[in-house]
Amino acid sequence: MATKKDKNAPEAPRLLEPFALADLTVSDYEMEDKMPFETCRFVPGTVSNQSADKVLFDCVVFDRVTFDNVTLERAEFVDVVFDHCDLSNVVFRDAVLHRVEFNHCKMLGLDLSTATLRNVKFEECFGQYAMFRFADMKYVAFRDGNFDKSDFYEAQLNQTEFSRCELDQAQLVGAKLKGIDLSSCEFRTLSSTLEDLQGCIMRTDQLSGVAHLLGIVLKDD
């Protein structure tokens, strides 16, 4: 019997068959403002010391690519997969991401502040200290990842999923959590407000992580 698709699950990238993607070496390119990259696969390699504005990536796969000192503000990613990439401290501020997957990526300190995310999945990623401040998210899934100390300040979390993630000391002030299910996640404390937590779904044992918002001091037996 077919499994019913979750209506809130992110839509997968629409990619061509692998043999139809042109293989490129990312280090061969000096990225410039508004440069388009379409229907290609970046093979394993390192892109270093790059900065550009409004670069377009359409139907692109990044295969084990390391980004070192890279800033791509207002970039547009449509039907893109990042597979086993290192995106630590990369700056994608004000970017637009539509049907994008990050699979098994290292993204410590990745900056997606004020970005727009639609149909985006983060699968088994290490995203400690990642920044999603003021990001506008819809149909976004964080699954089986570590996002300790990540920053979702004032982010819009529409139809956003957190499944089996580590979220200790995540910054969630201003991010409305009504309907957000954190019951499969792990954390000792969260930074939030009582107003923002209204309607959030948690396990009973997780309440100690937000007890400080009520002025409650918990004492071990």
Rank of each mutant, 00 (worst) to 15 (best):
E17D: 13
E38R: 10
L24K: 14
E32T: 13
Q156T: 15
S88T: 15
R64K: 13
M31V: 15
R118C: 04
V91E: 08
D148G: 14
G109H: 13
V55W: 04
L172Y: 05
H104T: 04
V47M: 13
T114L: 06
P13D: 08
L190T: 00
V100S: 03
L190C: 03
E186K: 06
V55E: 00
E32L: 13
A2D: 03
D28Y: 11
E30K: 10
E32P: 04
A75M: 08
C40Q: 06
R143S: 12
D63G: 02
R188Q: 05
V81E: 06
A211W: 02
F126M: 10
M131T: 15
L167T: 08
F19L: 02
L16Y: 05
Q206T: 01
D136A: 07
L218W: 04
M131L: 14
T114N: 10
L214V: 09
L218T: 02
E11T: 11
V43R: 07
Q206L: 06
E17G: 02
F132T: 11
A170P: 06
A75Q: 07
M107S: 08
T189N: 09
R133S: 08
R188D: 14
L72R: 01
S27D: 06
C125E: 05
C185P: 03
V91P: 01
R41S: 10
E32W: 05
V61P: 01
F142Y: 05
D6A: 07
T114E: 04
S163W: 10
F37G: 00
F132I: 12
K121S: 15
L108N: 10
D221I: 12
E73R: 09
E123V: 15
L112K: 02
K34G: 04
D53C: 14
E17N: 11
V70C: 12
D83K: 07
K7R: 09
F92Y: 12
E124N: 03
S48D: 12
E32Q: 14
D144F: 12
K219R: 05
V78F: 07
S208Q: 05
E73T: 15
V173N: 08
D33L: 06
E166C: 02
D58F: 09
L24V: 11
C85L: 03
E186R: 15
Q156G: 11
L110I: 13
H84V: 06
F67K: 02
A12G: 02
A12R: 07
E186I: 15
Y153E: 15
D221F: 12
T116A: 08
S163I: 13
E76Q: 14
L177S: 00
F62Y: 04
D79I: 08
Q169P: 01
F187T: 11
E195T: 14
A52C: 14
A175Q: 03
D33M: 11
I180C: 10
K121G: 07
Y29P: 00
R143P: 02
G45T: 03
L72D: 01
E101G: 11
F82S: 00
S183C: 07
K149L: 09
Q171S: 04
V140Q: 06
L21C: 06
G209T: 10
V91W: 11
F19G: 00
A170F: 11
R93V: 13
L112M: 13
F82H: 05
V120R: 06
K176I: 10
L97G: 00
D136Q: 10
D144V: 10
R203G: 05
C185V: 13
L177I: 04
F134A: 11
R118V: 04
F122T: 06
S150Q: 00
